[in-house]
Nucleic acid binder design. Structure first.
Lengths: 206, 206
DNA sequence: CCCTTTCGATACACGGACGTATTGAGTACG
DNA sequence: CGTACTCAATACGTCCGTGTATCGAAAGGG
């Protein structure tokens, strides 16, 4: 059924995979997932289609692999940002937001890709499960850190899951707005405000 | 330059256009915009590609036309829901949310399409302007109604624009979650809660 | 009632993307 | 050092979608 992942991955293959995955993001971002072709990705990565098909069964498979790689990277990035927060003492909610938010990048290219992935996943039950699982993993990885940080800010969280969902929604919803009007600082400011309001509403002073 | 829109639209053509636009939504929803073809749309609408090309210059053009039609329809639908609210007296914030929210449908197909439209628009400056303009129109149409309703609930809005942006973000962000887990009533409940919290945070008692 | 105009169907030529089967080069391993 | 294997390149046949140009039929105007 599910093959145990080979733990001895040949040097050559690993490199090719990596390059293809790397090349895929910009292609998807520029062309849109639906309009992207295997050839475009191979061209950008400096390979031929032969290389592609010996690494992935289909564009969908690469798409999924890329998604998983990126979200894992995102988790570690945010975790790092949290860790870097350690020295600060007794921040308030706004300070937490102002400090942590830059660590969650609003990346134009990545946003476009994940928007399309979302649409794609809504269409495909298998992918949908993968995606919700991934989101849960992100929440589970980040919420404990969030709890601790907020505790330091003197706030307790009655329902961490609800806060998690609210934060994800806030992130998703405001990201679009910021990307649509990237040069309008007000929009970015309101994004931070919304985070503050949401966190405040879902926590209480201890 | 810009041709003045012919105000005498032939019977036949108007019908064909309508049918094509109608057929386009399900095709985009099922296949994804990028993977949709002119032929699929024509087939579903019961026409040949000839009909398509004598009504639209490209798929993009149809896409945009469809988007404008749908968002206009959405505005009138919500406005109707607001109007139907008149009889209620002195609601609280939660009552407003519980009552108005069902009027803003979380439509699976439409959501997928607009997610892809968003991604597409982020890639195309022209479309981006169209989209922000459309969003502003929606906000402008709905906020006055919102203001009035909340006034009846005894709440004033210091910064209506900020509230508008926050509500749009809330809508966008929570819609995904609901569509991803359509059978989880908790997610829907938390969506309503978030609306309540946001509105409460952005208004004050009079 | 005819004549003009408009619209949608058909036919055509073209390009491009797909997936596979085969080949040759590079790599690991005995 | 040589053999066996792995992986990427090439070549191939195929299918599908595009956009245009042409033609026939309906609608509308005088």
């Amino acid at each position: 059924m599910i093959e145990p992942t080979a733990d001895r991955v040949p040097r050559r293959r690993a490199e090719t995979r990596r390059r293809l995955l790397e090349a895929a993001l910009p292609v998807f971002a520029e062309e849109g997932f639906g309009r992207s072709t295997v050839e475009q990705i191979c061209e950008r990565a400096g390979y031929t289609r032969g290389a592609f098909y010996s690494n992935f069964a289909s564009l969908d498979e690469l798409f999924l692999a890329m998604w998983e790689g990126r979200s894992a990277a995102m988790i570690t990035a945010v975790r790092a940002a949290f860790d870097a927060f350690t020295p600060v003492e007794l921040p308030d909610v706004r300070a937490v937001v102002e400090r942590v938010l830059p660590a969650i990048p609003v990346d134009d290219a990545w946003f476009r890709v994940s928007a399309e992935f979302t649409a794609h996943a809504l269409r495909n039950p298998g992918l949908r499960r993968v995606m919700t699982a991934r989101e849960e993993a992100i929440a589970e990885a980040l919420m404990p850190l969030m709890v601790e940080l907020l505790a330091r800010a003197g706030r307790s969280i009655p329902d961490p899951v609800a806060l998690g969902q609210a934060l994800v929604a806030t992130h998703d919803g405001t990201s679009v707005q910021c990307l649509m009007a990237p040069d309008n600082p007000l929009v970015w400011q309101r994004r931070r405000d919304l985070y503050v309001q949401v966190i405040t509403a879902y926590t209480e002073e201890t």
